[in-house]
């Protein structure tokens, strides 16, 4: 299926948010996930099945003034 991650179109197999985060090797504790413009708390990552055409934003805190 095809979904948009951080503005880029990516091809991948069907999965949940939780699976995607693991697959990408991201540290969950520092990650903020926005699924179709709605923020998803980490506790709910396992429940959200990604679908064709979904849009995902993966954000984290970085240095800034």
């Amino acid at each position: 299926m095809q979904i948009t991650i951080n503005g880029k179109i990516e091809q991948m197999d069907a999965c949940t948010i939780d699976q995607l985060v693991r697959r990408q090797g991201l540290k969950p504790e520092a990650l903020v996930v926005e699924h179709n413009r709605r923020i998803v708390q980490q506790a709910h990552w396992q429940e959200i099945q990604l679908r064709e055409g979904d849009s995902l934003e993966l954000l984290r805190f970085v240095g800034g003034g």
Partner: peptide, 10 residues
């Protein structure tokens, strides 16, 4: 202290 929010570089 301030922090910023950015897209993760995959």
């Amino acid at each position: 202290i301030t922090v910023a929010l950015r897209r993760v570089d995959l």
